[in-house]
Structures are given as C-alpha cells and as structure tokens.
Nucleic acid binder design. Structure first.
Lengths: 223, 223
DNA sequence: AACAAAATTTAGACAAATCTAAAAAAAGGT
DNA sequence: ACCTTTTTTTAGATTTGTCTAAATTTTGTT
C-alpha cells in the first residue's frame, strides 16, 4: 500500500466511527482535503484491491482487510505519538504532524519493539485508545464534559478535538490527561459551565465542554 | 524534496566520497539500482533545483546546498540506526532497511531530540560517523585490518561492508565494535590472516580483513 | 411525477518517477 | 583518422495521484 492509499483507508475508518453507514465521496473528499473526482479514482483502486466495498453512487465501506489495515496504521500513529511525548518530550499539540509521517514506516518489528519500550500503553497522549497487535483496543468509561451532571466529578481522560489550538488552550488552563475536575454548575442561557481544576475555578464555553472527555468518578460531592 | 530526490542526493554523496571527480550517469544508475535514462531525467530536475552541477555527458557533482542536504539525510539515517540498536534492541544487521525509511521523516525537532535521547553519539552501530547539526563529523584513526602490520593490536571500530551477511559473520565470530583484536600473522600466499579475538584464535580471508576497520593501539605486543 | 439542485462519475490533462528503444556523443583501439 | 563500442541522452509509454470541466445519476421539492 502506498502512503496515499493508507491515508484514505484511515480517513474512511475515522468517518465510519459511530455509524454503520457507507461513506460518501463528498464526505471523504472533505476528510482528505481533496476533490470528489480524486476520491472516485482512489476508491476504485482500493475496491480493486478488496480494501473496501464500492458500488457506484453508493459510497464506500471498508472490508475486513481494509479495517485491519486501518487499525494497523492507527496503532502506529498512536504509538509514535506516545513515543514522541514520553521519550522525546514533545507536547501533546506537536505530535500529530510528525506521527502522520511515522505511521507509514513499514516494520512490524519496529512497531512491536516501540510498543514494548513504551510498556504497552492502552491510550495515546490525547486519550485515544491504541489498538493492540490484533487490532483490539481497550474501552473506557468516558463522557463529554458537556454531558456531565451538575454537580459531579471526573478525571480528564481525552479530547474530541485534538487541534493544537484547543490543546494549547487546555495547557494554559492546566487541564491535562489525569487531571481531576469538579463540575460546579451550568448556565442555562448558553450552556457554559463552571468547573474547578487544580484549585482554580473557571468558566468554559459549551464548545470547550463539548470537546473534553471525563471519566465520571462521583455523581455529586460535598465541598 | 521528495524521497526519491533525497535518495539520489545521498547516492551521489556516497559515490563522491574518496574522490573529487564528477559522478557518471552509469555509476549513479548502478548505485540507485535503476536505468541510466531514469538517472538523466532525475539529475536534470536536481540541477534545476541547484542541488547539483550538471553538464551533458560530463556527470554530476553536488553543490554546497546538495551536500548540506545529503549530510542531513545521512545524519538522520545514522541517528535512527543508533536508536534502533540502543533503544529497541535491533542487531546491527537489521537496522539499515528501516533506517532507509526513517531517514526521510521531516522534523528538525525530532532529529535533535533523538540526538539528545541517544546522548549525542559520534558514531553509528557500524562505526560510521554521525554528522552533527552543522554537518560536521568526528574523524577517527582507523585502518583496514588487511592493512595492519603483523604483529599488532587494535580495537574494532567499524566495517566497510555493512551487508547483513558480513555482519552476521562477524557476530558468529564474536567480533563487534569495541572488541580488542590481536593481529597474529599474515599468510604470504593468499593474504589470509590469523587474529585473536576474545581469547579465540581464528583464520580470516583477505576479503574479510579488507572490510573491517581497527583503531591501532600497539605496533607490536608480547604474548 | 417532473424538475431543479446536489452529488458523483467520466474524460482529459498534468507532474513525478520510472521504463524501453532509438539516437547522439564520447572514448578506445588499430 | 576511422570505425566500433560504450556511455549518455532523447523520445515515447506507463503508473500513481492529483486536478478541472463536463456529463450523469441521485435526491429533494414542489
């Protein structure tokens, strides 16, 4: 598989998450930042190689093989991200770009040794699960902050948006994976929320709260 | 620069070592395992980008810029090889292939952090020098075993041929970088040599001796 | 059901990197 | 100096991945 083919497979996998429906050409074009006509060309090639099911005008769906490939690439991507943070002191907003390149390196031994070096991590620096050698990943109880009851508590376990802008925002407010967060209350008007993190109280917009995952630890709490 | 362009630049650099002459199309085609016609196409493109000097029928020579690029790729290649051996327990005959891929990853930060993680190594697992950030490398007193006086002593500091076959041969005879070697004598007939390494005496062919570098430590020795 | 809008595919073009076969230039031998 | 061999370049084709513009199919709305 070429890098480009791998990227398409990965893109389709991501769009398929949360829905058993076929992925449309336009949706995939948006994901890949390319034109629908280019997508049509590529998916024909991938269908030829049995990496996806394709019926004209009906969108695509990964085959078993395609899914396996996607999981391999995702495993590599997330292991490399973990490596960059754990071993090379990258911050969580810097790793994506480099991991996009590293995920295409072909060497099973390399991946497995990397996994061992990192002590077989279950989650990457953004809280996303890392598939094991067989493509299986651990799941974990998590809820968007915006969906948490008020009052309640939780531990930050992941982000939905992992853009540098968002991650830097979190850094500035000392929100990181593993951080304990108290959910104080919610404003009825704009759904903004008041939370307490590291002894500091802060007000966050619905947009922010909708991109932060917590593992709930208590339905309520006494001050 | 594309991967292919980088590979050509690297290939030209390697052929240029030990000689100020221009590199011929045929020689480069052999190095790159491709056809002369393909080489002509590529060197035109590279000349266009001022990475090399090219006059029809006169071969090529890297420019300043071209050399700088080559050294960057070589630095990356050798740092990755060191990483694979030091951190991921690869053996010295397994690293080349993977490093061929890793050397194309673009991230200055990654390279520098890797360098730091490895404690700024001067030489890679085959004894080849690793250029620093500015493209400068340490040199070291070394001599082919075949050129050593008899009797004498030295420490193994590098290999000329780094093919898996040769490296595995060395492994089998417990010859590794840093190993002390006593040069016992040389057979006038076929130039084969008797050496002592790790308490074991062994007979090695001229071919082998011509691919192993020693740092001389003593002109002679008493048993 | 008919028609307009949106989505999708096709057709044709282009750049990168390669190849084969043929032409041109350089090198070598007598 | 001439002719042959080798080297190098050119010409034309192929594959991968992309694009624009045009044609086609599907969807949605009245």
């Amino acid at each position: 598989m070429t890098h480009s083919e791998e990227n398409y497979i990965k893109g389709i996998y991501h769009l398929s998450q949360g829905g058993k429906n076929a992925i449309s050409t336009t949706a995939l074009a948006a994901q890949m930042e390319t034109k629908p006509s280019s997508v049509t060309d590529m998916i024909k090639r991938l269908a030829e190689k049995d990496l996806l099911h394709y019926r004209k005008y009906q969108g695509v769906r990964l085959t078993e093989t395609g899914t396996r490939h996607a999981l391999k690439v995702i495993r590599k991507h997330r292991l490399w991200e973990s490596f960059l943070v754990e071993k090379l002191d990258f911050s969580w907003d810097e790793v994506h770009e480099v991991a996009e390149q590293l995920e295409h390196i072909e060497s099973e031994k390399l991946v497995d040794r990397l996994d061992a070096l990192l002590n077989y991590p279950d989650f990457d620096p953004h809280g996303d699960p890392i598939p094991d050698k067989n493509g299986v990943f651990k799941t974990r109880d998590k809820k968007l902050l915006s969906a948490m009851p008020v009052p309640s508590m939780g531990v930050c376990v992941g982000v939905r948006d992992s853009s540098p802008a968002f991650l830097k925002f979190l850094d500035r407010h000392h929100i990181a994976l593993g951080r304990e967060i108290r959910v104080l209350d919610r404003e009825a008007f704009d759904h903004s929320m008041r939370i307490e993190v590291g002894g500091q109280t802060l007000q966050i917009s619905h947009q922010i709260a909708g991109n932060l995952y917590l593992k709930p630890t208590a339905d309520s709490w006494k001050p």
